[in-house]
Nucleic acid binder design. Structure first.
Length: 406
RNA sequence: GGGGGGAUACCAAAGUGGCCAACUGGGGCAGACUGUAAAUCUGCUGGCGCGAGCCUUCGCAGGUUCAAAUCCUGCUCCCCCCA
């Protein structure tokens, strides 16, 4: 099968990228691939220690998918060996070594989720222990001679940690080398990564050059900012939207992103054609409310389906926008004639973590029954035969309270 | 190898014998406001108890004291400087 023209490919590839180093080389590679009718090897490393994927991961996976759709070969590297080190990008501490079984399990889970985005059939999976595990100490010494310490501490997260007096273990320096070695083994043509991976990707390039390979092109995608509008999307900031999240949850979370993120999300997370993007940029500014709903709808549909997205929209509009009680909420049933303290009822619902928290909520007006705020923490209610009320706890937790009717 | 500094709640950071469940900021939660949000203002932010009140917490383990986050001893971990 043929590839689209270099220009067409570049247009797809460029979308959303922060940097392509060097762009001309990518064009050359594409040209050559076209001439020889040979797909490029596109490499993406993934971390088997964190198997829960979210929209942040999807940015890069989507890019990989785009390469697949253009006819290139996607290679997912499961970093089972580098997992021993723990990527020092960000302020992660060294991660505990995982057992082979755990890695296997995580890798599978990772791949299952990644399949929501990638074309499974066309994805090659490799474990880097396959080659890194075979290297002996001499190999490692030779490899580590390729980079100087000065070069290493150029890396801004190292220098930052150094300045902050945070510890940097020596073995962390090996991480970029190991990742780079992966590129040498694969003879990858392009490696994808977030901007925080720039250094690592460049090391791969350098090592390939040392081996007289045609060095890989490094393609950096932005780090997706999470719903808090400040930090990158990440589980450790509790600032993420999971790929497998329930539709309503997903829709709601997307709706809560700050306005500035509407456009970047369209660009990075949806299939809106490139040529329509400017239109969305304008819409996002002029009508953030509706545009954001469209965004939430589009993404929810992408990971679930149309019906789920419709339902989610309806649900959210009722609860958050119109302040109505949604249909379809959990029901708690109590014995008719029995009396229960509100405190105990809320405990039953599981909406709060402790009685102290419940009390705080009640005192602060965060609890209502049938729309009426209850601020007396000693409040208790008696269930009659026909009791059927709606309890609201906090912003969006609802529960129906009914009696069993005798 | 030598010298010095440090470990406090989700994070950062005060507190150096009782007034400490522990200042303050961030974060989080709730309320008001709103187009969801953001911003702003207000309150809350260890647990148990309707409540008076009680219990547990300041790296770990012991000790001194009527009383310790604060003093002593040992341990673990971290950082800096010199070599």
């Amino acid at each position: 099968m043929g590839f689209p023209s270099v220009e067409e490919q570049m247009e797809v590839i460029r979308r959303g990228t922060v940097e392509i180093i060097p762009e001309e080389e990518l064009e050359d590679k594409l040209k050559k691939s076209l001439e020889e009718n040979r797909p490029l090897k596109i490499k993406l490393g993934c971390d088997p220690t964190r198997p829960d994927l979210h929209l942040g991961h999807s940015v890069i996976l989507r890019k990989l998918r785009q390469f697949q759709d253009l006819g290139h070969e996607a290679i997912l590297i499961i970093g089972d060996f580098t997992g021993l080190i723990g990527d020092p990008s960000g302020q992660n501490k060294t991660r505990p070594a995982l057992s082979p079984e755990e890695i296997e399990k995580n890798a599978k889970s990772y791949f299952d989720q990644a399949s929501l985005i990638l074309d499974e059939e066309k994805t090659t999976i490799k474990y880097n222990s396959e080659w890194l595990g075979k290297m002996n100490f001499e190999d490692v010494i030779r490899l580590s001679s390729k980079l100087t310490v000065a070069r290493m501490i150029e890396r801004d997260d190292f220098s930052r940690r150094f300045e902050n007096n945070d510890p940097i273990s020596l073995h962390e320096f090996l991480y970029p080398l190991a990742q780079g070695q992966d590129s040498v083994e694969l003879e990858s043509d392009v490696e994808l990564g977030g901007t925080d991976q720039k250094f690592n990707l460049l090391v791969g390039r350098q090592l390939q050059k040392e081996q007289d390979q045609n060095p890989q092109v490094c393609l950096m995608m932005p780090l997706l900012v999470g719903p808090d509008g400040v930090n990158k999307m990440s589980k450790s900031y509790d600032n993420y939207i999971g790929l497998t999240e329930e539709p309503r949850e997903m829709y709601g979370k997307i709706l809560s992103i700050p306005d500035e993120l509407i456009y970047p999300y369209f660009e990075l997370l949806t299939d809106i054609p490139v040529e329509q993007l400017p239109e969305y940029k304008q819409k996002a500014e002029e009508d953030p409310r509706n545009t954001k709903h469209e965004l939430a709808y589009t993404i929810t549909r992408l990971y679930h389906n149309q019906n789920a997205a419709d339902d989610a929209r309806k649900y959210i509009e009722q609860t958050l926008v119109k302040n109505e009680v949604p249909e379809d909420i959990p029901v708690l049933t109590f014995e008719a004639g029995s009396e229960h303290r509100l405190l105990d009822i809320i405990k039953e619902t599981g909406f709060t973590d402790s009685n102290a928290e419940t009390k705080r909520l009640i005192q602060q007006g965060g609890v209502a029954i049938d729309g009426e705020k209850i601020t007396d923490k000693g409040y208790s209610m008696t269930f009659k035969a026909d009791t059927d009320v709606t309890l609201k706890v906090g912003k969006r937790n609802f529960c129906r309270l009914t009696s069993n009717g005798v």
